[in-house]
Design a protein around this nucleic acid. Structure first.
Lengths: 218, 218
DNA sequence: GTCTATAGTTAGATAGAC
DNA sequence: GTCTATCTAACTATAGAC
């Protein structure tokens, strides 16, 4: 009657860890399916309005059955958040790697922003914001620590650029990073895929602002 | 048994309109008090978790009595949003006026961003984001039209600056505005009032980015 | 592992007394 | 105008059959 929660307790990004192992039980698959289904629903309707019954129905199960795989509704939401930030990390680090070892930190930062924006908008990241506050403290702390690791990727690139003397002096890099990523986080709220700009265009526009500024020098 | 909803139906920013009239009934006062109480609760706990019973208790009433003043819970949330954006508009236009007629559009834009940030963070504007999606379409449309009017203040200043030739060419001003305001909207998520930076410092940092860029010219 | 059935809560909303 | 009392409808979560 007790589900296999304990096995993964404390682990972060279960599904990524799992793929490196051989044993993938039926429970693992069902759990992963539930996370994917829940993610889709949360993206579409917001984390607050999605019920266990919704998730169960979309996964062609009954609501009660979910409790075999998760201890509570909050655990599912947390798993969705962890999945999202895990995949974002993969996407961003891949983009950085793709920039190549010859690239400058600024070029890598640019590539990272592009990847971040693409992921953010396509996965409707802002739906996540809504979820975080509602989580019980323990789960929220877990999420915030993942969030910090993710942010550190970007700050690290800026710091590299700074060390190479590529930045104007006098900036607080954390503040610059938060302003830049805030600008991109908000894009999901106004971006129109039917419009003339691609997401890369938007990221490039931000990069141009960071590079040149908007205002003509007097 | 029917409340006075119809009297104000379709009106925007009731409380601002009211202050210009003489007749302020008891119902008007109670309604305003309910909006203020609801706003405080929404700021503290998020729009989704605040219940009518919470609002009633904080206003020292019983839940059922609220229905004399509002048709539904959604109407209260909408009133909170309208109140918020109304006050933000007042704050921003006041800051622009305070910049004086001799000021440049860029200076006025700077003043507007400062006021916007101050209001956004102090009133925890981001709580609002959470609320918008849940509103029924009719109320959401009303809110979005107010939102557009507010945004137009900022785009207007940028367009003035552009006309005076103060901006670098090739920028989409709406995109610049949305990126800049997105950066500030996100500030409420990370700003620490105990930290070394004031909110004006943050706004100034963004203005410096917009002015000079972050990256050294090659 | 998934089901059915249901306990236990809590929410928004309404009716009628005062 | 505000109250009490209550309806109805949802939700999370649990228990036990299969």
């Amino acid at each position: 009657m007790v589900g296999p929660h304990g096995t993964y307790c404390g682990q972060v990004m279960q599904q990524f860890a799992k793929t490196t192992k051989n044993a993938v039980s039926k429970a693992d698959k069902t759990k992963a399916r539930l996370i994917n289904v829940a993610k889709r629903l949360v993206q579409e309707h917001g984390s607050d309005v999605v019920t266990l019954r919704d998730i169960a129905a979309a996964a062609k199960m009954k609501a009660g059955s979910i409790y075999y795989h998760f201890e509570s509704r909050d655990e599912i939401i947390r798993a969705v958040l962890a999945d999202g930030i895990g995949r974002a990390t993969v996407a961003v680090t891949a983009a950085i790697t793709a920039a190549g070892p010859q690239s400058t930190p600024i070029e890598r930062f640019h590539a990272a922003l592009r990847a971040h924006l693409k992921y953010t908008v396509e996965e409707h990241f802002s739906a996540r914001l809504k979820a975080i506050r509602r989580l019980p403290k323990r789960l929220r702390d877990q999420h915030m620590s993942q969030e910090r690791e993710y942010a550190a990727i970007f700050t690290g690139l800026l710091r590299e650029a700074q060390k190479q003397g590529a930045l104007r002096p006098g900036y607080n890099l954390s503040v610059v990073r938060m302003l830049a990523m805030g600008a991109l986080t908000w894009v999901a709220e106004w971006y129109d895929p039917q419009g003339p700009m691609s997401l890369d265009d938007v990221a490039d526009e931000l990069m141009r602002i960071l590079r040149d500024g908007v205002i003509k020098p007097a």
